[in-house]
Simulated scan of single mutants.
Amino acid sequence: MADLNVDGMALAPGVVETIISIAAKEVQGVASVGPSGVGGLRSVFASKPSTQGIEVDVDDNDALHVSVRIDVYYGHVLPEVADAVRTAISDAVASQIGIPVGSVDVYIDGIQFAE
């Protein structure tokens, strides 16, 4: 995604994705954000959250459409986790950037067994 302009303010690529990644990871039951196997050592040593597995598009009405891939810990109800991720992302983007979120598609790529 190129620079995103909001009320005369330009956001660099990756800013929105970072906000989305942090919001999703804070949901109980989310093991990781991004494609399975991206975590590992890279996530341990990375200073910034991974934004892999997150896609953001802007429609003609300047609403964001988000697609995010997550892994969930075993034992959590998948539809509930997905719904909580949708809500967390919509709330975080709206409150921190002020851009309406048109949709959030959550793809559960895997289950992890140790929490």
Rank of each mutant, 00 (worst) to 15 (best):
P35L: 13
I19V: 08
K25A: 10
V30Y: 03
S32L: 01
S43C: 12
A24C: 08
S32A: 07
T18H: 07
S36L: 15
A23G: 08
G39I: 00
A31N: 04
V44N: 11
V27Q: 04
F45D: 11
S47T: 11
V27E: 00
A24K: 02
G29M: 00
L41N: 10
S36N: 15
P35D: 12
A46S: 14
G37H: 02
F45A: 13
S47C: 10
T18L: 04
V33C: 01
S21F: 10
S43E: 09
L41M: 12
Q28M: 11
Q28S: 15
V38Y: 09
V30Q: 05
P35E: 12
Q28V: 14
A24V: 03
P35M: 15
V38E: 13
F45I: 05
S36Y: 15
V27N: 13
E26S: 15
S21W: 03
V38G: 03
A23M: 01
V38F: 13
I19G: 04
F45H: 13
V27H: 10
I19W: 00
T18V: 07
S21V: 05
I19L: 09
V30D: 03
G37A: 05
S21E: 08
P35N: 14
G34N: 03
G37M: 06
I22F: 06
F45R: 12
A24M: 00
T18C: 09
V44A: 13
V33I: 02
A46G: 10
S21R: 07
V33A: 04
V33F: 06
V30W: 06
S36C: 15
G40N: 02
A24T: 06
G29R: 07
G40L: 05
S43Y: 03
G29C: 01
P35R: 09
F45L: 12
K25E: 11
V44E: 09
G39P: 07
K25Y: 06
G39C: 04
A24Y: 01
I19S: 04
I22R: 07
V44D: 09
S47P: 11
Q28H: 13
S21P: 12
S21C: 10
G37F: 00
T18R: 10
Q28F: 12
I22G: 11
G34K: 02
Q28N: 14
A46C: 11
G37D: 04
G29K: 01
G40S: 06
F45M: 08
E26V: 10
E26M: 15
V38H: 12
A46F: 08
S32T: 01
F45T: 09
E26C: 15
E26K: 15
L41D: 03
A31C: 05
A46Q: 12
P35Y: 12
R42T: 11
I22K: 08
S32W: 04
S32R: 07
S47A: 15
R42D: 13
Q28T: 14
I20P: 06
G37L: 06
L41F: 11
G40W: 07
G40P: 08
V30M: 02
V44L: 11
G34C: 05
S47D: 15
T18A: 07
A23F: 07
R42Y: 08
S32H: 03
R42L: 12
S43Q: 10
P35Q: 13
V33M: 00
G29E: 04
V44Q: 13
R42F: 06
R42P: 09
A31Q: 03
I19A: 04
R42I: 10
G40I: 00
Q28G: 15
A46H: 05
S47R: 15
Q28P: 14
S47G: 15
